[in-house]
Design a protein around this nucleic acid. Sequence first.
DNA 1: CGAATTTGACCAGCGC
DNA 2: GCGCTGGTCAAATTCG
Length: 264
Amino acid sequence: MKTETRSEEFELSGFFSRSPLDRAGNGSSSLGFMDLLGVQDLTSHSLFDDMPPPPMPVILPPESSMVVNLPVTPNESSVSSSSTEAPNEQDLANGSAASDVDTELDKEKKEPSKGWEKKGQKRKREPRFAFLTKSGVDHLEDGYRWRKYGQKAVKNSPFPRSYYRCTTAMCGVKKRVERSSKDPTIVVTTYEGQHTHHSPVVPRGSNMMHRAPPTAVHSSSPTCRLRRLILVSRSISAKCHQSGIGTLIRRPAVPSEATGCFRT
DNA sequence: CGAATTTGACCAGCGC
DNA sequence: GCGCTGGTCAAATTCG
C-alpha cells in the first residue's frame, strides 16, 4: 500500500517537458540534466533557482525530465519523526515550516545519521525529491560519485530499484533509482538528504572538467537552498492538490508552454 | 590491489 | 503474531 501510494504520486505528477535539444530532434549531444531541469539557463527563474544538488547526466541523450517533490503521505509520516512531517499551508504562510526544516537540518549536521535511529527509535527521513527522466539508462550521471549499496525488486514492477549513497566522506546523501512500471522509458531518481560538499566531484573517466559548475550550487548554502526549494515545491504541490490536479512544471523556454497544471 | 558492484540475509514498520 | 515490504548491511565477486 505504501508503495502504491507513492507510485501514484509519481503518476499524478508525471508530465515531461521537452528539452530544446529534443525538440530539435537531436539526441546525440551530451545535454546535461541541469539543462533539462532548466538550472543553467534558469538561474533567474524562481522555481529552479534553488534546485537541490545538481543532477546533470551527460551519458545519455535524455529526452526530457522534470522534478517533483515527494509529498509526505500519511504512510511516510508514520515512519518519520514528527519534526519531519510536511508542514501545512498555514505553516508555510507563517514561516514555521522553515524553522522546522532548519531544525531538522541542524540536527543532521550535529549527528550525521545512517538514516535509522538506534534500535527502538523511529527512523529519521530527510526531505526527498524525485526527478523523472525519460532516459535509456538507469543511473544518470549527475556529477557526484555514488556507491551502490543495494538493489531490490519492486512490487508490481519488473524493474528493480537500486540504492545509492554519495561516496564523499561525511556526506550521507542517498538516492534511489527505479524505472516506472507503466513506462519503462521513465527513470525515477529520488534524492534524499543534502550534500555536505559544494563541488560535485568529477566521475572517473568522464570528461566533465569542461563543464562549469552549476551556479546555484555555489550561490548559497546547501541548507538555505534546500529550505527554499521545499517551500516552493510544497506550496505548488499543495495548491495543485487542493484543486485535484497534478503538478506540472515546464520550462519557460517556450512561452506557450509555461508553467501550469494538468488534470488527472 | 583498492574501489565499486552484486546479492542474499537481515531488520524495522505496517496491515491484517 | 505473522507475513509483506522497504531499506540496509556485508561478504563475495568483479572491475579498472
